[in-house]
Amino acid sequence: MEQTVALDEAQWTVKTRRFFSCRLLLNTASLGAVSLRAEAGAVRELTLDLLGYAPFQGGGLVTTVDAPWQHTGRQELLSDIYRATDHGVAFDLGSFFPELLDNLVDGMWLNVEMTDPNQPVLLNLSTTGIRDVLPEFKRCLGDLLPVNFAQIRRTQLFYDSGKWQLTSGQMKQLRDIARYIRADKKVTALTIDGHTDATGDRLLNLRLSRQRAEAVRDYLVDEGVPAAMVAHLRFHGQRYPAASNATQTGRHDNRRVMVTLQCQEALPDQASNQGVMKGVNDG
Rank of each mutant, 00 (worst) to 15 (best):
Q3S: 06
T4Q: 13
T4F: 11
T4G: 03
A10H: 02
Q11F: 11
R17T: 06
F19H: 13
S21N: 08
C22N: 11
R23A: 08
G32L: 03
G32R: 00
G32N: 05
A33Y: 02
S35F: 10
R37G: 01
A40V: 08
V43A: 10
L46F: 07
L51H: 12
L51Y: 07
G52W: 00
A54L: 14
Q57S: 09
Q57A: 14
L61V: 11
L61E: 09
V62L: 05
T64G: 02
T64V: 15
A67D: 12
W69C: 06
Q70H: 11
Q70R: 12
L78W: 01
L78M: 08
S79G: 02
D80I: 04
I81W: 00
R83W: 01
A84P: 02
A84S: 14
T85K: 02
D86V: 09
H87P: 03
G88T: 03
S95C: 04
F96T: 11
F97D: 04
P98W: 03
P98K: 09
P98M: 01
P98A: 02
L100P: 15
L101N: 06
D102W: 01
D102C: 09
N103M: 08
L104Q: 03
D106H: 10
W109R: 01
N111V: 06
E113P: 01
T115C: 01
T115K: 04
T115D: 12
P117C: 04
Q119R: 13
L122I: 14
L122F: 03
N124A: 09
S126Y: 04
G129H: 12
D132P: 00
V133I: 15
F137N: 02
K138W: 05
L141W: 09
D143I: 00
L144W: 05
L145D: 05
P146L: 07
P146E: 12
N148G: 14
N148R: 05
I152V: 14
R153C: 01
R153A: 12
R153V: 08
R154F: 01
T155P: 01
F158T: 06
L166P: 00
Q170A: 11
M171T: 14
K172G: 00
Q173V: 08
D176C: 08
I177S: 04
I177Q: 06
A178W: 09
A178V: 06
A178K: 06
K185R: 15
T188F: 04
D193Y: 07
D193M: 13
H195W: 05
G200C: 12
R202M: 11
L204Q: 15
N205K: 07
N205P: 04
L206H: 10
R207A: 14
A215G: 09
A215L: 06
R217Y: 02
R217L: 10
D218N: 15
Y219N: 05
V221D: 01
V225C: 08
A228Q: 10
M229Q: 13
M229I: 05
F235C: 09
R239I: 04
Y240P: 07
A242H: 14
R251P: 02
R251Y: 06
D253P: 00
V257F: 05
Q264M: 14
A266C: 11
A266F: 08
A271G: 15
N273T: 10
V276G: 13
M277I: 04
V280N: 10
N281G: 12
D282F: 07
